[in-house]
Each structure stands twice: as C-alpha cells, then as structure tokens.
Nucleic acid binder design. Sequence first.
DNA 1: TCGACGCTTGCTTACTTATGCATTATACAA
DNA 2: TTGTATAATGCATAAGTAAGCAAGCGTCGA
Lengths: 153, 153
Amino acid sequence: MTKRERQTVIREIIATRPVGSQEELRQLLAERGWDVTQSTLSRDMRDLRIARIPTPTGIRYTVPEAASSSEDGRATLASIFPQLFARLDVTGELIVVRTVVAGAQPIAEAIDNEGNPDVLGTIAGENTILIICRSDSARERVAKRLLSLAKKG
Amino acid sequence: MTKRERQTVIREIIATRPVGSQEELRQLLAERGWDVTQSTLSRDMRDLRIARIPTPTGIRYTVPEAASSSEDGRATLASIFPQLFARLDVTGELIVVRTVVAGAQPIAEAIDNEGNPDVLGTIAGENTILIICRSDSARERVAKRLLSLAKKG
DNA sequence: TCGACGCTTGCTTACTTATGCATTATACAA
DNA sequence: TTGTATAATGCATAAGTAAGCAAGCGTCGA
C-alpha cells in the first residue's frame, strides 16, 4: 500500500472512466480499498500532473500525454544560456544563435517564456535557433542582451 | 469587444506565458483593456476547454492540443487554424505565427498545401511558424487572410 | 537505544473555480 | 414601437482544490 501504487491506481482510474472531482475519485479509490483524504489526492494529482479540464458537460480529469518526461520547473534564460550558447549572428530583424548540441530547444523555450515583445517568435532546430524580432532595433536590443548573458557564464 | 475576440486574446495569453489563476488572467486582460470578472473567465475557460495543470511549481493553464487532423487526410487551413492559432506578427516580408503547443506543424502543412503563390515557404517549429512571403504586399494579403480565419474560430 | 531527519498523511482552513439567479444588451417579429 | 426570446455578464455564494502545520513512522548513525 505505497504511495506509488496508489498513484498508479489513480492514473488507471482516470484513464479509464470520467472523474469529475477529487471527492469522486476518493470514493472510487475507497471501493478498491484505498482510504485517503482529498488532501492526499490533491497532492497525488500534482505529482502526476493530472489535468483538470472544464467542458460544457462538466469537469473532467485527464492523464497527461504519455512520456511527459522531465521538465519540472522551467529554467530561466539566464540560468541556461551561458552553458548552451556557442555563437551568435544577426541579419535584418533576424538573430541566428548557435548552441551546443541539443541546446536549441531549451533556449528557445526559455526565450519564449520571457514574453519579450521585441521577439515575435523563435524556431529551434538541433543546435540552431532562429529568433525573429519585431524590427531592426528590436533585434539589436535582443542580440545585445543575449551576448551579455553569454558572457556571464 | 466581443466575447469571441476576448476568448482569442485569452488563448493567446495562455499559449504565450504562464498563468496561474483566473484572477491573474483577469489582470493580464485588464492591462489590455478587457475588464471582466472571474465568473466570465471561468465560463470562457470552459468554452475553450483550457486545462488546469498542477505542477510542483504551481498551477498552470494550457490551451488544449487540438485533436484535429486524423479525420480525412489533410485538414483545410480554415478548419484548423482558428483552433490552433495564438497570435500573429509581421516584419518585412515575414509573418510569424504563434500557435498552441504542437500546432505549428499542421498549420504549416495546411498552408503549404494551398499552393498560394504569395507564400514562398514556411518553416515550423514546435509552436511557431515562419512564413516567408514573396513581397511586402504579398505578406499583407496573407496576414490579412490568416487574421480573418482566426476570427472565425 | 536514542534522537535527528525525512517522508507521508490527515486536519483545517485559505484560496480558487463554478454556478444559480437577476439584470442588461441585442435581435427579431408583430 | 412594443413584446419576446437569446445571449452575455456580474454578484453572491456554493463547490472544489491547495497548502500550512503537526503527528506518525521508518531509517540511519552515534
């Protein structure tokens, strides 16, 4: 009767039938011999990252898409950029950042998460990121910032 | 200032940055001139089926990955764009479209399939598409069309 | 054996979201 | 215009979820 076993059962139940609240889930678990409180379920849901989706016909919980993997917190740009950065070039309103292998995705994601209005968007490959800026001057600001971040590593 | 427009803005905000509560979303909307109550947002979230996901670092909302595609081979741009679209910016002869997670590929494919001469090509990442147009005026036409499609969602 | 430490859980309460009801805006028909 | 039906929204509050705190347990090393 470990926490891990319980969470497996929870995943199974939620994947199998519609559940509309943690209280309802609690009862379903109780029927199977697991007697816990809503508090515990709230924590389990967090551990399992189970999504709660409101629909016209009521709330539904759903298990996250398969292999959700790592990404626990989210890294700040400043914290990862210095380690992954390789070099940077610019042209027009574009910035091309070269990174170490596999470094493009995480950096691009971190850039996106900043919500910087100078940045219209990013497209990341394996070790290259294309950053599309709003304008030439925006590109200048962004490039300058990235370079200064790189130096802090 | 229609409900539909507001919901589009909501989708954009949530696809673009982390939002931890409806109250927080309310403030973000207020900054942009949308003044509504939490009640309304609760209903909007239901209409949009926006998922609420608990994580070790706090609650996060996410726009659903549109089921779409699978139906009949290739989806038309009009049929999937409204659901996957988040926001759009332009610069020079480029258009940068931000989409919900995993939305870039299908949209880019749909755009390619149209064979529009105004579009030289597209490059899609995870949630960003770069559309390279033939000229500034071509870009204008394409952007206008996409925006009108977005509103039909 | 004893105590420090860490993990898990329940209790209770704070916080967040959903909803019944009433009101106002909008569209349409008579 | 007037009446009627819909839709959208706010208010107040119910329903549901998260989190602080402390208790209970097992582990480890002195």
